[in-house]
């Protein structure tokens, strides 16, 4: 008996629907659990007061500040470096053994578990360069950790910009740099932003590499050489050491909400930019 193509079509459609709902369902379930477990303990005081008694009481203000500084500084350093590398690889060199080695290195680095970055950061920044457990060592380690992601996504984004647009730009008497800044980067913007957002996510959620390099001090960091704690690390320690599951879930909720918030802001800004270039 032949199965009719229409029947297959229906089955496939139902199957794909199920898969999509399943994926989204898991996501919603996770967020829901965090929300219900965390929201009773979440209030302004929790956000704006400092942790007391290892986090058993008080809020998470110092860890919010620690997270913001760590993520922002890492992104600020990694983005120009990563986008620059991507531009170099795609626009300023021809394919050669040299670019292949760089690309191979980047691919390999992207697959390394974060704890190895942590170990490297500890040995090199914390011990060898004598930075101690500090925001600085954390920022540099996280920068190295997210760099491969930014390079790869930026390179993919830059490659999708049609060659025709570059040719037109050159024919209108633009130099290479003018073409890169006025045509290539605006067109590749959304793709590059995706890479940055992925990196923000990784940096916000990172624990292993951060504990090794930035330490886990609960005091508010006031300089780059201070140790500090991020929300993810705080959550990990609260839960792992059984200090306070309530505070742990409330911390996780702040973490999730801030990632959501950052995403919304980023895509809002990107929409503004891309509407100018379409």
């Amino acid at each position: 008996m032949r199965i009719s193509p229409n029947f297959v079509d229906k089955i496939v459609k139902i199957g794909l629907n199920f898969q999509a709902f399943f994926t989204v369902g898991i996501l919603i379930a996770i967020v829901a659990v965090i929300f219900f477990k965390g929201s009773p303990y979440l209030n302004l005081e929790f956000i704006f007061s400092s942790p007391e008694d290892m986090g058993r009481h008080g809020g998470i203000f110092s860890t919010i500040i620690g997270t913001i500084f760590l993520v922002l500084l890492s992104i600020f350093i990694a983005t120009p470096l990563g986008v620059g590398t991507a531009i170099f690889l795609t626009e300023y060199t021809k394919e050669s053994w040299f670019t292949k080695i760089i690309r191979f290195g980047v691919e390999s680095l992207a697959g390394i578990p974060s704890i190895l970055y942590g170990l490297f950061g500890f040995i090199f920044f914390v011990v060898k360069l004598g930075m101690g457990w500090s925001l600085m060592a954390g920022v540099l380690t996280i920068t190295i950790m997210i760099l491969p992601t930014i390079i790869r996504t930026s390179e993919e984004a830059v490659k999708t910009v049609p060659r025709n647009l570059r040719i037109v730009s050159y024919s209108l008497s633009a130099t290479k740099w003018e073409t890169v800044t006025k045509v290539v980067l605006p067109s590749a913007g959304p793709g590059i932003l995706t890479g940055i957002m992925l990196s923000v996510g990784r940096a916000v959620g990172e624990t292993a590499a951060v504990i090794f390099t930035m330490g886990s001090s609960l005091r508010l960091p006031t300089s780059l050489m201070d140790s500090g704690r991020t929300m993810a690390v705080h959550f990990y320690i609260l839960a792992r050491e059984g200090i306070s599951m309530e505070k742990a879930y409330a911390t996780a909720l702040v973490l999730v909400l801030s990632i959501l918030f950052i995403n919304i802001i980023a895509y809002y800004i990107m929409n503004k930019v891309t509407s100018k270039y379409s």
């Binding site: 040719i167 024919s171 209108l172």
Partner: peptide, 24 residues
């Protein structure tokens, strides 16, 4: 100056397309 076989507008406004060269 050169005009190509396939029209290739830059992804931006009409004004900004014409102004691309002069702005450079």
């Amino acid at each position: 100056g050169m005009v190509f076989a396939v029209p290739i507008p830059l992804p931006r406004s009409i004004f900004d397309n014409i102004a691309y060269g002069p702005r450079l």
